[in-house]
């Protein structure tokens, strides 16, 4: 019973994803193109990074310039995720020898 229900749920979600993937998408009357899955409607932020990253940050690797400069705060967050994980492992896998009863 549970398995059948889960199968129905799974198929529902998958069918939505499949619909989006093969959907012809919105029609842009100006360019005569369809926006299908995988062809973005906008590319201006990508182009900004490609054209300005080298000049602004002085890094040849644009990916690193995004990771550590434009979105450096996210990287700090990800680094603290690792820090949190380490602390959590240390906390959960500690032995209760030093704890009071």
């Amino acid at each position: 019973m549970r398995n059948i229900l889960m199968l129905i749920v799974f198929l529902t979600i998958i069918s939505f994803f499949m619909y989006v993937a093969i959907n012809p998408g919105d029609f842009n009357s100006q360019t005569g193109e369809h926006f299908v899955f995988g062809s973005p409607k906008f590319t201006d932020m990508d182009n900004y990074f490609i054209h300005n990253a080298q000049n602004q940050t002085g890094a040849n690797n644009v990916v690193t310039s995004i990771v550590f400069d434009y979105r450096g705060f996210d990287t700090l967050g990800e680094a603290s995720v690792l820090f949190t994980a380490v602390l959590g492992v240390g906390l959960a896998l500690r032995l209760l020898r030093g704890d009071k009863k």
Partner: peptide, 19 residues
């Protein structure tokens, strides 16, 4: 497994409601 199953179930329900 049931916890995650309920989550997916609500997700499917919401998608159907919005459809």
């Amino acid at each position: 497994n049931d916890y995650v199953g309920w989550f997916l179930g609500v997700l499917a329900t919401m998608l159907l409601i919005f459809l």
